[in-house]
C-alpha cells in the first residue's frame, strides 16, 4: 500500500475543530493543521506538545545576566576600578546598584533575541526556506487538515469518508 497524504479543507475553524476531535477519538492521527490564525484549543486535540520556549527563555536570560556581570566586573572593577559617585567601594557587590540597569537590559536582550531566533529556527523560518503550506487559501479564509496514511491504520478511503462526513468542503489526495 502506497503512502498517501490527504488534505481536508474547511471553511470554518469551529467545524474543523469538531471534525478533528471526532477523528482523533476514532483513532486517526492528524499530522498538521493549517490556518490563517491560531485556533483556540486545537493543540491538545492534534497532540501538539506544550512549547518549551519558556525554559529556553530562562536559560538565555541567565546567560545574558552572567555575560553582563562578567563584562561589568571586568570593565569597572577589575581592569579599571570605577569611582561611582565618590563612594570608596570598589567591590562588585558594593557597586551592584550601578550595574542593575545594564544587568536588566542584557537579561532582556539575550532572552528576547534567543527566544526569537530559537522560534524561527525550530519552525524552519529562515531566508531561502520554501513554504510548507499545501494550499494558499489557508493564508486567507480557509482551514486545512493534513493526514498521512503512513501514520494511520485506516485506509485513505476511510479517512476521506470521515473528513467529508464531518464537514470538509474539499478533499484532495496526493502521493507522499
Amino acid at each position: 500500500m502506497s503512502n498517501k497524504v490527504i488534505y481536508g479543507l474547511f471553511d470554518d475553524e469551529e467545524i474543523l475543530l469538531k471534525s478533528a476531535k471526532d477523528m482523533v477519538s476514532k483513532g486517526v492521527r492528524i499530522k498538521d493543521v493549517f490556518s490563517p490564525f491560531p485556533i483556540h484549543g486545537i493543540d491538545p486535540v492534534i497532540g501538539v506538545p506544550r512549547t518549551r520556549l519558556a525554559i529556553m527563555s530562562f536559560i538565555y536570560g541567565a546567560i545574558g545576566l552572567s555575560l553582563a556581570w562578567l563584562m561589568m566586573w571586568y570593565m569597572n572593577i577589575s581592569d579599571w576600578p570605577l569611582d561611582i559617585g565618590g563612594k570608596p567601594s570598589q567591590a562588585f557587590y558594593m557597586n551592584l546598584t550601578a550595574f542593575i540597569p545594564v544587568s536588566f537590559e542584557m537579561t532582556v536582550f539575550c532572552a528576547a533575541h534567543g527566544m526569537a531566533l530559537t522560534y524561527l529556527i525550530v519552525n524552519s523560518l529562515y531566508p531561502g526556506q520554501q513554504p510548507h503550506n499545501p494550499d494558499n487559501r489557508t493564508t486567507d479564509d480557509k482551514f486545512m487538515v493534513q493526514i498521512n496514511t503512513a501514520d494511520n491504520k485506516k485506509t485513505a478511503e476511510e479517512i476521506k469518508s470521515m473528513l467529508s462526513s464531518t464537514g470538509a468542503i474539499e478533499i484532495t489526495e496526493k502521493e507522499a
Binding site: I84, G85, G86, K87, T97, A98, I100, P101
Partner: peptide, 12 residues
Amino acid sequence: WTSQFLLIWYAN
C-alpha cells in the same frame, strides 16, 4: 524600589 534607591544611592 530599585528606581527609588538607585537614584538616591547614585547622587549621594
